[in-house]
Design a protein around this nucleic acid. Structure first.
Length: 426
RNA sequence: GGAGAGGUAGCGAAGCUGGCCGUAACGCGCCCGACUCGAAAUCGGGUUACCGGUUAACAGCCGGUACGUGGGUUCGAAUCCCACCCUCUCCGCCA
């Protein structure tokens, strides 16, 4: 949610931002809703003021032991009128709130303007894609041949877009999680958190998954419970409704969680393999920062994610998402894409965003300035560090050899009992 | 699932025989000041948020709203009634 005052006083800025995002949301609609809201509030508050004054007279008369009947006369009718107007006013308030909750964040001025991913800007590349002197296999073929990835049985258990990992693959997933979290907690100053994987509606609304993107979520049947699509949701909500101390900022949390996504609307996309799953593991970084510092924190987080790829010896590039390709709550987003030889392209493996105060407003996440004073909204940031399933894909495809075995990155070997090559069932 | 207790400011807590009690007693914390070489202790003062109107103003002033959430009774609700949510304790069940 953006600041209401920006909409009221500088609607052109919002109109521009929405155009940049290629959104069809109509600011004029909001302006009309808001005008109605304010007119109704002015009217009903004037009546309430009169009622409050009259009630004070009643109280005064009763305390003085006098009859209050003359004051009470007619107040019933006034209260009836207030009740009617109040309903209209509350509806008008709710209408503006709903509109605001469906409005995406304003892009930061440094974000390139563009309509689609074609307009994203490449920031840097690291590592040259390997050249292979044999036909490359994709991770599905490699993983199945080596007895690690089992999509058939996963389909039996659950359906498409699930995978059973056996032996070295299950171990490799656990190794990646441990490796990522060890780097984050030992070297990068993150506090490790193990949050719930199920959250309520309010939590989903604060980070922006609801009300607009409910169809992307898995919802439990009996209650207003949702499976998290990313650990960003529980981690960012950790401080909802709280007032932090400025001196404690920035706060940095890391968690490994499964992520659940319905992938509605992605029929036919990435149907093969581990790229797009209903359930996948991810290590997530979340930071709470001072507004003046949040873009430094974004760069820091981006570097931390890049560093993981470098240690895993995976070629990657970093891109800045353009206005039209950014997520709902983000003001600026970097995507890290790792090279996948079988697809002969770079694919997203991490996304690092600064949401500025967009989520903080929804969740009332504030901090008390040093030296006291009014609490202000913190900035929230999130980034993958990294998506585990896709990292496993990259390791298989980039490390493959002609005989179908896979060389493991050195950084991972301590986590695999010293194993350096995946050569078959272990 | 059964029984009980509770949800009030940054935190703790009073108010709960309905009406100067919500810028909300009292305490803690925090801010300013006094004392001090400095600090601690002590003493004095200050410290809710949001919305509407006015406005150049996110200054001031006027008004409204908020005591877990939503309803109800009433001229008037933190206070009385109903429903729901959450937390805690005990019991039951259970990894």
């Amino acid at each position: 949610m953006i600041d209401l005052k920006i909409l009221q006083k500088d609607p052109q800025r919002v109109i521009k931002a929405l155009a940049d995002r290629a959104s069809d949301i109509d600011v004029a609609e909001f302006l009309a809703l808001d005008a109605r809201r304010r007119a109704l509030l002015t009217e009903v508050e004037e009546l309430k003021g009169r009622r409050n004054a009259a009630s004070a007279e009643v109280a005064r008369a009763k305390r003085a032991g006098q009859s209050a009947e003359s004051f009470i006369d007619g107040l019933g009718a006034l209260s009836e009128r207030i009740k009617e107007l109040d309903i209209q006013a509350q509806e008008a308030v709710a209408a503006t709130e709903t509109w605001m909750l469906n409005l995406p964040n304003l892009p930061h001025q440094s974000v390139p303007v563009g309509a689609s991913e074609a307009d994203n800007q490449e920031l840097r590349r690291h590592g040259a894609p390997r050249s292979f002197d044999f036909p490359v296999k994709d991770h599905v073929e490699l993983g199945q041949n080596l007895g690690g990835l089992d999509f058939e049985r996963a389909a039996k258990l659950a359906g498409s877009r699930f995978c059973v990992a056996w032996n070295w693959a299950a171990r490799l997933e656990r190794a990646l999680i441990s490796f990522f979290l060890d780097v984050h907690t030992r070297e990068n100053g993150y506090t490790e958190v193990a949050p719930p994987y199920i959250v309520n509606r309010s939590t989903m609304a604060i980070t922006g998954q609801l009300p607009k993107f409910g169809e992307d979520l898995f919802k439990l049947e009996n209650r207003e419970y949702f499976l998290i699509p990313t650990a960003e949701v529980p981690l960012t909500n950790l401080h909802a409704g709280e007032v932090l101390e400025e001196g404690d900022l920035p706060l940095a949390y890391a968690a490994q969680t499964p992520c659940f996504r319905s992938e509605a609307g992605s029929y036919g996309k990435d149907t093969k393999g581990l790229i797009r799953m209903h359930q996948f593991m991810k290590v997530e970084m979340v930071r709470f920062a001072h507004p003046d510092d949040s873009y430094n924190q974004l760069e820091l987080m981006r570097r931390q994610a890049e560093d993981l790829l470098e240690r895993l010896e995976l070629p990657y590039r970093t891109i800045v998402l353009c206005t039209g390709d950014m997520g709902f709550g983000a003001a600026k987003t970097y995507d890290l894409e790792t090279w996948l030889p079988a697809q002969n392209t770079y694919r997203e493996i991490s996304s690092c965003s600064n949401c500025e105060d967009f989520q903080a407003r929804r969740g009332n996440i504030r901090f008390r300035p040093r030296g006291g004073g009014k609490a202000a909204f913190a900035h929230t940031l999130n980034g993958s560090g990294l998506a585990v399933g896709r990292t496993l894909v990259a390791i298989l495809e980039n490390g493959q050899r002609k005989d179908g075995s896979v060389i493991l990155p050195k950084a991972l070997r301590p986590y695999m009992d010293g194993m350096d090559v995946i050569a078959g069932r272990v």
